[in-house]
Amino acid sequence: MTNRPPAITGLHGAGAIGTVTLDWKPVSWITVVDHYAVYVDDTLVGKTVYPHFVHRGLGFTGVTRSYHVVTVDAAGNRSRSSGAAAVANLTSVTVSGVPVATVGTFDGKGSELALSPKGYAGYPARFPSDVDYTFGTSTPSADWSYLLPGPADKWAGSKNHRATFRFELTAVPEQDLDLALWLIDSHASLAASAVLTVNGTEVDRLTFANGATKGSTIADSTYPGSPLRPSYLERPLPRALFRAGANVLELFKDQGSWIAYDALGIFSRK
């Protein structure tokens, strides 16, 4: 009679833009685990040796999926299935909202931006006073660098850098607006953070996920086998931050290394 390894317990998950993250209580060390097999319904979506799994590439409209996990031991024996966990990825504001001002296209590519795909060494000469972009007047291919460098980047002067994004509003918004900052990649260990400011008010310190350190020379995260590690940062911006007329959003990169843009945008709510 085959001895089944124990089933895992405590499976739970959390959704984000394009991803679901699962965690569970690992089985006892007495069991020599080869891997945990992760399923959506009856479809295997991944294997891991850790009690943790990130299901990526789920798109930008929220969908609830039913996950379960099976323990597989070193002899190939399989446990009973864990209890199911229903988890939804989040709907992006690029789907649910209306664009107010954007730079770049939210498509997993950065090729439409200045210096892309691998001209980062030209940043100091092209942007000696950093990026200053006006929506409706500036041109992405000329005026918005595909990378925002940080103080860890010797090629950009080993100093802090700022990206300034200017846009007009006909009136103070009636509801909060939303920021979407999509990256095709970032430095694998030094992505760190940047300070977000709107009209001179510090709103937040944005922490970036570590990427694959490939986005400085590759502009496309969408093709099969792409080595890039895209990430998606979205957050509300209180309506009180904005004014009728000229508005200014700034990203001040005072920690770590570069991030590689997919696109940046301000969205209103439907």
Rank of each mutant, 00 (worst) to 15 (best):
F242R: 03
K109Y: 01
D176W: 08
A171R: 11
K270D: 12
G200D: 05
G110L: 02
V45L: 06
G225V: 10
K118V: 05
G119Y: 10
V100T: 13
E112D: 14
T222K: 13
S66H: 09
G97F: 14
T222C: 10
V100I: 15
K47T: 15
E112S: 15
F53Q: 00
D73V: 01
V203R: 01
A88N: 08
P51Q: 03
D153W: 04
T19S: 00
V203W: 01
A16M: 10
G18C: 09
S138Q: 04
S79H: 02
W24V: 01
A101S: 04
L169V: 06
N160Q: 15
D254T: 04
R239T: 09
I184M: 06
N3K: 15
V72Q: 03
G136N: 07
T61L: 13
A86V: 07
A37H: 01
E202A: 08
R239Y: 09
T139V: 14
I259H: 03
S81E: 13
E168Q: 12
Y50L: 14
T105E: 14
T61M: 09
I259C: 12
S257C: 13
E234W: 10
E112A: 13
W182L: 11
S186K: 01
L251N: 00
S186A: 15
G15N: 08
V70E: 02
S226G: 07
T43E: 15
P128E: 08
V70M: 06
Y133L: 11
D23P: 01
P51Y: 08
S189L: 10
S96D: 13
P124V: 06
G215N: 12
T71D: 02
Y123S: 00
A85W: 02
P230R: 10
A219M: 05
K154N: 14
Y36V: 11
